[in-house]
């Protein structure tokens, strides 16, 4: 499915600001895995997603998806089969376009943009039906500009857009972090529902350890560009927040020790 093999990445290489994020990182994800990713600030979580999505190019190594080498595909080319939701609710939608126009753009993902109508009558009905189960009342506001929506509504819409054309991989980077707890819960439930309904292979970064344990079938913890924990199935079900916190602290401790020794 997703195979990240021996990937290295440094920012500002060759300058005094050089920052090596990954050295020889590998990660394999099986079909229909729902992987939650945790780790401290700057541990490389977002960079990993950016390398998979093609926002940044890898320095070394390979990224494969469903047997196809995508290492050298541009971000917009990969976007045809990778769905993505960003942390910033403003990022995934277009404020000056209406809800239905935003959805229509997502609906044509992976297809060539032609001179046909950007939005057809039958689509409108389809979108109303799609939005109804969210319970946010958006189905009655199809012609409202997205700029008028709340952060949570926009994030729910972005999630729908990212999965409207079934992606081979769904990347979520702290997509509920900017929302209030109640809204965050709602968007997470929607996430779960979309993932299950469509059997999506998913990578979800979160800062919330409880969510990381509650969602998905596999959990990885990152520290300093390395995967320091990788649990799935029963092992993940048995893990507690305390286990994670202990490990989290220990990993930082170890690194500090090493830093003292060297």
């Amino acid at each position: 499915m997703l195979k990240v093999s021996n990937v290295s990445k440094a920012f500002n290489a060759g300058t005094p600001n050089e920052k090596v994020v990954f050295e020889d990182l590998s990660l394999h994800i099986r079909p229909h895995d729902f992987v939650t990713v945790i780790g401290g600030n700057g541990s490389g979580k977002s960079t990993l997603l950016n390398l998979i999505a093609g926002t940044y190019a890898v320095d070394k190594g390979k990224v494969e998806l469903n047997g196809r080498d995508i290492t050298h595909l541009k971000e917009y080319e990969r976007a045809g089969f990778i769905g993505r939701v960003f942390q910033d609710p403003l990022m995934g939608t277009c404020s000056d376009l209406t809800i239905q126009e935003n959805l229509s753009i997502a609906k044509r993902k992976g297809a060539k943009r032609t001179l046909r109508r950007g939005l057809t009558e039958s689509e409108r009905k389809e979108y109303a039906k799609l939005l109804e189960p969210l319970g946010l009342g958006l189905e009655d506001r199809l012609t409202a500009k997205v700029g008028l929506l709340s952060g949570g509504q926009r994030q729910a819409l972005t999630l729908l857009m990212a999965t409207l054309v079934k992606p081979e991989l769904l990347l979520l980077d702290e997509h509920t972090a900017a929302l209030d707890p109640k809204t965050a819960r709602k968007v997470l439930e929607l996430t779960q529902q979309r993932v299950e309904e469509n059997q999506l292979t998913t990578l979800m970064i979160t800062h919330n350890m409880r969510d990381a344990l509650a969602f998905g079938n596999r959990l990885i913890m990152m520290s300093e560009g390395k995967i320091i924990l990788d649990i799935s199935g029963e092992e993940k079900k048995k893990a507690t927040v305390k286990d994670l916190l202990d490990l989290f602290e220990k990993s930082n401790g170890e690194i500090n020790d090493q830093m003292f020794l060297s």
Binding site: E75, Y76, G80, T93, S95, A106, T114, G118
Partner: peptide, 22 residues
């Protein structure tokens, strides 16, 4: 109001969203 035209409008507002939609 064509598919292509939508992309022109969207690019002016949020080109990352355009990229994310392929």
């Amino acid at each position: 109001n064509t598919e292509f035209g939508f992309m022109i409008v969207a690019t002016g507002i949020n080109d990352r969203m355009v990229t994310a939609n392929g």
